[in-house]
């Protein structure tokens, strides 16, 4: 990992910990993510993935430990961090009672895009997603796969340095998942760092590097190829199973 210079680190977590009473959701997690990487954050239900991600996004205050996002301290510079990140939560989170275009304009607007920038951006986005005939439809009438793709595109509308995706493809069919990952690659090609949690091991293979969290601790962190080598198997499923088998917590 030392081959990267510090400057290009976009996420740096040091002994990041979150306790809820006696329960330690995230226990002294330390890792780094480099600029432009697609970083997979894996773990069984209840392993602490979402909690860790929420701390990085500023939605949750760590009990102890440090983290820097895009070079900004999570305690001291939350406002700068907010401008540098995009976020897509586990729940589908666009407004169902607003139309496609209204959602795009709303989220673009609160991210501080100007009217003019917004116009260009939304035209481009609708073009890419092929939603030209759906712009005036309520989001509630779209199929789930399209909603997810729209939610992702909205999350990167303001060209953030990093985008956090919390199980973005939950409940979506394999074809749509594939299309979703095409969008992720496109964003990655534009230089956006991707931090993604997932359950699907085929998706883990799409990542540059992955970490596997078990019981609030990162048990393994490397490229998919190296991990498979280290656990002398040729499937990510097997790697995950070997690591997560010993978990005491499960969702």
């Amino acid at each position: 990992m030392k081959k990267q210079v510090d400057k290009s680190l976009v996420i740096k977590a040091e002994k990041l910990t979150k306790r809820f009473g006696d329960f330690i959701a995230v226990n002294e997690v330390t890792f780094e993510v480099c600029a432009g990487e697609i970083f997979g954050f894996l773990g069984a239900n209840g392993a602490g993935k979402t909690t860790a991600m929420k701390m990085l996004c500023g939605l949750s205050t760590p009990t102890s430990g440090n983290a820097a996002i895009a070079g900004f301290d999570i305690y001291k510079q939350p406002e700068q961090i907010k401008k540098s990140i995009g976020y897509m939560s586990q729940k589908f989170s666009l407004y169902e009672d607003l139309t496609v275009i209204e959602n795009i304009q709303f989220f673009g607007g609160i991210y501080g895009l100007s009217d003019k920038q917004l116009k260009g951006k939304s035209d481009e986005l609708i073009e890419t997603l092929g939603l030209k005939n759906e712009t005036k439809k309520l989001v509630s009438s779209l199929p789930l796969g399209w909603k997810q793709k729209l939610a992702f595109s909205v999350a990167v509308l303001h060209e953030p340095k990093i985008v956090f995706l919390d199980e973005p493809t939950g409940g979506v069919d394999p074809v749509t998942r594939r299309q979703f990952w095409d969008l992720i690659y496109q964003a990655s090609d534009r230089g956006i760092t991707i931090f993604v949690t997932t359950h699907y091991m085929d998706e883990a293979e799409y990542c540059n590097r992955i970490s596997i969290m078990v019981d609030g601790v990162i048990k393994a962190l490397d490229t998919p190829i190296n991990l498979k080598k280290a656990y002398s198997t040729n499937s990510m499923d097997e790697v995950f199973y070997k690591l997560a088998r010993g978990a005491e917590r499960s969702g």
Binding site: K82, I85, Y87, S89, K91, S93, L94, Y111
Partner: peptide
């Protein structure tokens, strides 16, 4: 409930 509050709180708004 719908999860949009999270998105709002993550945004610079």
């Amino acid at each position: 409930e719908t999860g949009t509050m999270e998105i709002l709180l993550v945004s610079p708004f």
